[in-house]
Nucleic acid binder design. Sequence first.
DNA 1: TATGAATGAGATTTCATTCAT
DNA 2: AATGAATGAAATCTCATTCAT
Lengths: 195, 195, 195, 195
Amino acid sequence: MTHRPDDAAEAGRRLRADARRNRARILAAAEEVFAEKGESASTEEVAARAGVAIGTVFRHFPTKRDLLAAIMKELRTRLVDEAAALSADAGPAAAFFDYFAFMVERAARVRTVLGLLAAEGMGAEPGDQIRDLEQVVGELLEAAQRAGAVRPDVALDEVMAILTATCQGALHGAWDDDLRRRTLGIVFDGLRPRA
Amino acid sequence: MTHRPDDAAEAGRRLRADARRNRARILAAAEEVFAEKGESASTEEVAARAGVAIGTVFRHFPTKRDLLAAIMKELRTRLVDEAAALSADAGPAAAFFDYFAFMVERAARVRTVLGLLAAEGMGAEPGDQIRDLEQVVGELLEAAQRAGAVRPDVALDEVMAILTATCQGALHGAWDDDLRRRTLGIVFDGLRPRA
Amino acid sequence: MTHRPDDAAEAGRRLRADARRNRARILAAAEEVFAEKGESASTEEVAARAGVAIGTVFRHFPTKRDLLAAIMKELRTRLVDEAAALSADAGPAAAFFDYFAFMVERAARVRTVLGLLAAEGMGAEPGDQIRDLEQVVGELLEAAQRAGAVRPDVALDEVMAILTATCQGALHGAWDDDLRRRTLGIVFDGLRPRA
Amino acid sequence: MTHRPDDAAEAGRRLRADARRNRARILAAAEEVFAEKGESASTEEVAARAGVAIGTVFRHFPTKRDLLAAIMKELRTRLVDEAAALSADAGPAAAFFDYFAFMVERAARVRTVLGLLAAEGMGAEPGDQIRDLEQVVGELLEAAQRAGAVRPDVALDEVMAILTATCQGALHGAWDDDLRRRTLGIVFDGLRPRA
DNA sequence: TATGAATGAGATTTCATTCAT
DNA sequence: AATGAATGAAATCTCATTCAT
């Protein structure tokens, strides 16, 4: 009937090569467009930017909401993956703070990170992606606390709250690199143990 | 054209009063509606909530954008006024942190505070309202720094950035009172001088 | 919010004169258009035929389904009213057969009579219009049976079934006047008492 | 181009068999789907029900209209064939009335019988199928009239009209078995000679 | 001045049909 | 010959804004 869309792709079922290419293109275009104009941007513009017809967008994402949800999911996956790289490259203290800064820097560019962090009820389907963003941050946090780089009395939900807030601030406030660095400095000071 | 000119004059005065009342009602309704559904909510819904016809909304605010801008302005005025009360009631240290907390608590309720802080290009018309929000915060900050309650190396733009960020986080994250308190605790620690 | 449409008009609440005029125009245009092209005809064509913009149709009938339902309702009312006239003018025997013939003749022109008789689940809201079509036919039938013009063992549901069927046949078959007369002759013979 | 021509030939035969099977499947699925949802049902749904891809449907029937026409033709053939069986099994009187009842019962299930009877301009291609439905009914009618079971003054077009009408009524009215029997009783009485 | 109906551009969604794989 | 992705015109519905009453 209606093309058993997108989740099929997610679930790993086979898609034709060109379909997969288009799906990726659409996601990329959508991320750009929604990043620039907010989620009230039109689906038609997404299609145009992706270089496909409007119907193709619909085939992959039957609803605008589905498209938005797919962007979030994709982005979350990417961010989680990048966390792994960071924690491999650096010691636990650096890993935590680097990841925090990294996400905020991302947010300054990509408006959609917002929705990702705010979760906004968009089907997170816990379990279908074992390592969720919050879990990743939790791991980095614990490691940093064990290493004495973060106050032991700070809980994960507070960290997520501050991370979210900082990302949103960075985005909407259009901070430049310097302001971001100084702002993060204050936040990080709040997280570090008192001398 | 009116039969009894005296009555006409009286009616005119009465109408102006009505108009003022309507303006206020519309602003209040708009603040509620946009707070709940974001700024993509429809003008018709604002009219309905205000109990007036759609035409009346457009008579007072020729454009949706104008309506949004008016909300911001009204809110800014209110917040600035409240700052005066706080700094009168408390010492400089308390005043700064109280005001910060006060704004974040507001943000948790009113989505529009966001736009206010983010400025979003909506006609701030600097000067037509002598004391702007940023200036108020600046004064509180300076006082708190002189009193030794805030690190002297913290600049106003950083404070505004963190304030904005925390407000946005509080709103979109739907923090409860406890989480808000703990989160602010961390931020405030970052702002206080090291022992 | 969304214009408290159509039922307002139905319920007799005041509508502006021009609005009432447009509502009537739209209904008339819709009846024509759907009669000609079936219910898959486009709302836009209805708007064009009525000489209004598409949004006006939407204001009165928020959904295509609502528009269809309104046509049915309007038509039912008209038919029921016309029954009263017939039973006043003629004796009971003539009244019944005349009404039957009258409806079939109508059906030959108006495709929508179909849906009316078939009821198709479109909100009949029993009670909000005390005398429904079936009831009217029932009254005419009873009177005709008391007068000995219709077999006493014929039940109302059979009559409605034959009436519906004949209407649909007349419509889809595009019967001419002669064929309709002869066909009704056979049906009426089946309804009359055996000599 | 094929490497082994023998296999190619064999494959060709196999493919033709597959194709025939697919054609039949599609027709069956289409009959079901259009019966349930009317002819505005989507071609994709037909494909899904048939278990083939949408492209396959269009390979066999280049146009939706062609598909509809094919259903009609297929159905007509089936109904005509079944007439032969009936007139062989029973006397002429029974054959006519049985066939009439049989078609109405069919119509109660299959929405497409409607279109068949109404002809709707869909390529009947007279002559390519020597015995048409109307002709079959005509033969049964004549036989029944010769046997004195049907009034001699009834013409074929009237019978077709009543038959069509009753089929449509049965379909759209969703008559149950009992109502259908009683309704047909009245119609048949109208067709029988007066005592 | 208030009302609320009308406008019409634009957004989302549907679906018959084409075409690369 | 089958598949199913892509197309794009058209349909439905939304909503900021205008204007007659």
